[in-house]
Design a protein around this nucleic acid. Structure first.
Length: 170
DNA sequence: CGAATGATCCGA
DNA sequence: CGGATCATTCGA
């Protein structure tokens, strides 16, 4: 579940060395039942990772200048992914959480591009590691951000840690 | 092919 | 609120 990614540590051992952050904001996207999902209209070359096994990365390029990182998390055999939207600095990304507040900024701070799509997030240079669970009382559940009206489901599939400074929008 | 569009961000 | 800026997708 998307919510369970909160508090976990994302590590990228890239060309610039180790970069690590603590996830504080995520959004869930389903497949055919979710008009806002890239998997809504079936598989394409770009969205192929979303239809593969869970626990891998799906990175896409948008607006001609930003990359966004997702964790593939199919639900009962149905395509799905979790968009990583915000984090707090741990190592190698400076010390300003605002530089990690937003999916485009997060991917940029880590140095991720579509070259890092479809990677094994358990055992590769891009990985997610367990951390102590975040208390439910610290988690806020809300509507997702940035979707056009038609794709908006109004379902509360955005999760973030209350009070964190690495959040894109309170 | 050509055109429209977008899970964003920044600055005015 | 609009501009930047281009890979991807869809229709002809």
């Amino acid at each position: 579940m998307a919510r369970d990614l909160l508090g976990k540590v994302l590590v990228y051992d890239g060309p610039a060395g180790r970069r690590a952050v603590r996830l504080v904001e995520v959004e869930a996207y389903l497949g055919a039942s979710d008009p806002a999902s890239h998997a809504y209209r079936g598989p394409t070359a770009r969205t192929a990772p979303m239809f593969g096994p869970p626990g891998r990365s799906y990175v896409y390029f948008v607006y001609g200048m930003y990359h966004c990182l997702n964790v593939v998390a199919s639900r009962g055999g149905v395509a799905g992914a979790v968009l990583l939207r915000g984090a707090e600095p741990i190592a190698g990304v400076g010390d300003d959480p605002r530089a990690l507040a937003g999916p485009g900024k997060l991917a940029r701070a880590l140095g991720l591009t579509t070259a890092q799509t479809d990677m094994d997030l358990v055992r590769s240079e891009l990985s997610i590691r367990d951390a102590s669970p975040v208390q439910s009382s610290r988690v806020v559940r809300a509507a997702r951000i940035g979707l056009n009206q038609h794709a908006t489901t109004h379902k509360p599939w955005r999760f973030y840690i209350r009070g964190s400074s690495g959040i894109s929008r309170p």
